[in-house]
Write a protein that binds this DNA or RNA. Structure first.
Lengths: 339, 339
DNA sequence: CTGTTAGCGCATTCAA
DNA sequence: TTGAATGCGCTAACAG
């Protein structure tokens, strides 16, 4: 290996000073285009790779964004948020340093500490399911934006899915297909999604003048097995619903199974819509499951973009707290009601 | 904010020199336990946070590991590899800087360049599906280990699943349950998994003295729909197999659907085993799908651990190329053959 | 056992 | 328009 080439080697080779090189490369200073170009080509031919540790140390900008999440692993959604954030960060010449806590506060604290030691410029504090969070103490004073997470009393920017709107979209679709007795398989946890989607369910009914019937709601854990049981309960009723709106695709898969067990054909005897658009399921089910997509990629992107803006803008832009639209993805699980 | 506290502030407050502080904190040097402890507590009380940019610049060790993958997003496996790598890295006081290329060589090159600019100590070059890869040119000379990827002609360490062993385990399970006519729904792509699992399938047959019957093999894309079609073909035969071994869980889901369509009960009329143990499917299917787990977390861990060892050991340890064992996860999709 | 000192590679005044 | 000099915060000789 040849000796590592630094800014001074480039300067020597180009016959200029290090200052000129620095300016040429970073776009700063007042240089003639000629020198700038020449320096750049010299740098390239020398295979120069700027040392961001040094420039970060000097300029107090590491160009690193910390991404802390609760669990990147189990959820299949995670990846898209990360990806969105990464793409946006890359556009700003930043790179992501990721840390996840596995829902363990102590690990999270350690991870955050590591990020801070590496002098990340800012942090994206993400959750894999939309939830209310507290800003960790260590992060006070650090530029931070919440991703798929929010905090009422905080003045930080955040982005979450529009839960209520998502449910409304799903229900509108069902109601426009002609359904009026629509069961809702809701999640059992007390999280924003549970509350927001229920609100959307009710809002849709109200909007279309359909009375709300508490008995059409069944609660279930967000998994297929429990979803199946809950759906079976609803389908066993003499006046069974003609359509089911499901909290998520895993529960919807349970609803499919319950329908099979009850010898109900989808969508002929029963229509189903859910939320997640988790393709491994929604696309695989027979028939394909019509589902509302959660905009994970877009949220990730927005968070990184927003953070970059806050890092750039010296002292403007009040925090924004966004609820992002969730689009309907049509497949084959909805048809007109039987009767 | 109080002025940022650095090593010199700590030194002043503790009444020692910066060297002593540095040594106390890093564990180096020959200090009395007393001073070491005192310095540490002073540092803590001052809320000192070491600046890794500076220490990295000076020591030429950023303590950052680059993690480059092809697509973190779509696959649900990804997370666990990242997680394993992260856990192992954290144990070595390292942190992960992640970059993914979305299967785009140009993006990958840019990402790698960014990592190199940040002076990562080493790189984990990962694929989300086991595949043969070439080491990117930019990485020559950089400590690298392959994760779920390998390169025959390279002298780098790598870890991949033991594809053949996985298939063997699955087949043994079926054969021990009494099956002899076992169909194989293989993937259609020419990748190590396709070849390895087929080899395992044949090895298992040979081991138990069962003749290989080419016609019991059906090819399918690794998705549920195509898997369903392929399974239907096999199940339509007059001498249909009593069991199906599936390339992965998505194909297995298709096999379940084909069984339903053919009015075959699982496992009464048809046993199924597959590979992936992708819980969102395997656990959700009715009955639960017996599947071989791919050791993603463990591979991720191994890769980071191995890289750390290479970074520590100056010039020992020849490269290791590991095939990792894949354990069987029992659920309810296997029973004795009907006849 | 502890302190002094000299850079790591770069960005940035300030002068020329 | 360019160059010389200074130090970001820390580690690692080397001295004491």
């Amino acid at each position: 290996m040849s000796k590592r080439v630094g800014i001074r080697e480039v300067a020597a080779a180009a016959g200029v000073s290090v200052t000129t090189v620095s300016h040429s490369l970073s776009g700063g200073g007042q240089l003639s285009d000629a020198t700038r170009k020449r320096v750049r080509s010299v740098a390239e031919s020398l295979n120069y790779t700027p040392n961001r540790l040094a420039s970060g140390l000097r300029s107090k900008r590491s160009q690193i964004i910390g991404f802390v999440s609760d669990e990147i692993s189990t959820t299949p959604y995670a990846g898209n948020m990360l990806l969105g954030a990464q793409d946006a960060a890359a556009a700003h010449d930043q790179v992501l340093m990721v840390v996840n806590s596995n829902r363990n506060a102590q690990l999270e604290a350690r991870g955050i500490d590591a990020l801070l030691q590496h002098r990340v410029d800012g942090i994206i504090y993400a959750r894999m399911y939309h939830q209310a969070v507290e800003l960790p103490a260590a992060l006070s004073g650090v530029p931070t934006v919440f991703l798929d997470a929010s905090n009422e009393s905080s003045d930080l920017s955040s982005v979450v899915p529009d839960e209520e709107g998502a449910a409304l979209t799903a229900m509108d679709h069902l109601i426009e297909a002609g359904h009026r007795r629509i069961g809702y398989l809701n999640n059992i946890d007390d999280i924003p999604a549970t509350r927001g989607r229920l609100a959307g369910y009710r809002a849709a009914l109200a909007k279309h003048g359909i009375p709300f019937d508490e008995s059409l709601i069944a609660l279930s854990e967000s998994m297929t097995g429990p979803g199946r049981d809950a759906a079976s309960r609803l389908l066993a009723r003499p006046d069974r619903p003609t359509a089911l709106f499901c909290f998520n695709d895993r529960i919807a898969m349970g609803a499919y199974q319950a329908a099979h067990l009850a010898r109900l054909a989808i969508p002929h005897d029963l229509s189903i819509v859910s939320i997640d658009n988790f393709e491994v399921l929604a696309d695989a089910l027979l028939p394909g499951l019509t589902s509302i997509a959660l905009p994970h990629y877009e949220m990730g992107r927005w968070a990184a973009e927003r953070l970059a803006a806050e890092l750039a803008g010296e002292a403007d832009s009040p925090p924004e707290q966004i609820r992002m639209h969730c689009p309907l993805v049509l497949r084959q699980s909805v048809g007109p009601p039987l009767r």
